[in-house]
């Protein structure tokens, strides 16, 4: 089976999902940003008391928030968050996820379990890891440092 067929049939749960960092809507932007830094994430998900996603706060929102209101760091994250965490069920095909990312130009999706609770985070990075894992040709022998190129041409 080829990579395309795998993408069409494999569920989102086959991706290497990122741990989701839940944040209460009353948390401050500073607290949300600290969590993003600590967990090396570009996004935190705002959840309600039942653990269901109600929004998300991203690096983009942090940047625009700082420009609009430099005092935003001490304000509640709910004032700046997107009111949609863009949930996708963990059993949905990866192809659905790609369509969702493309159509809405998203970088993060909140993966939910069967009960609709926020379970994990994913996005284009998860897709890239999936392609790297499922398409090993060329992938195992890649350069990881651009400076491995020869400084001068050898031979003719």
């Amino acid at each position: 089976m080829g990579l395309r067929e795998n993408i069409l049939t494999d569920p989102v749960s086959e991706l290497e999902l990122r741990d989701l960092v839940p944040v209460d809507r009353k948390a401050t932007v500073r607290e949300a940003a600290a969590l993003m830094r600590d967990h090396r994430l570009g996004c935190v998900v705002i959840v309600d008391a039942a653990g269901k996603p109600v929004g998300k706060f991203t690096e983009r929102l942090l940047m625009s928030g700082l420009l609009k209101d430099p005092a935003c760091l001490d304000k509640p994250v709910e004032k700046f968050m997107y009111a949609d965490a863009n949930p996708i069920r963990q059993d949905a095909p990866i192809a659905d996820m790609i369509r969702m990312l493309k159509d809405r130009e998203l970088r993060f999706l909140c993966v939910t379990d069967g009960g609709g609770k926020a379970a994990a985070l994913t996005g284009p990075r998860g897709l890239m890891e999936y392609v790297a894992d499922h398409f090993p040709r060329q992938v195992k022998v890649q350069k990881m440092d651009s400076k491995v190129y020869m400084e001068k041409r050898e031979g003719a």
């Binding site: 284009p124 398409f135 890649q142 651009s146």
Partner: peptide, 23 residues
């Protein structure tokens, strides 16, 4: 920053982004 050349393949780019964590 880590870069690639325009003659490299998409597989090279995706691998760098996946393994190196570069967006």
């Amino acid at each position: 920053p880590v870069y690639i050349h325009d003659t490299d393949s998409p597989a090279v780019a995706l691998n760098l982004m996946a393994v190196g964590g570069f967006r």
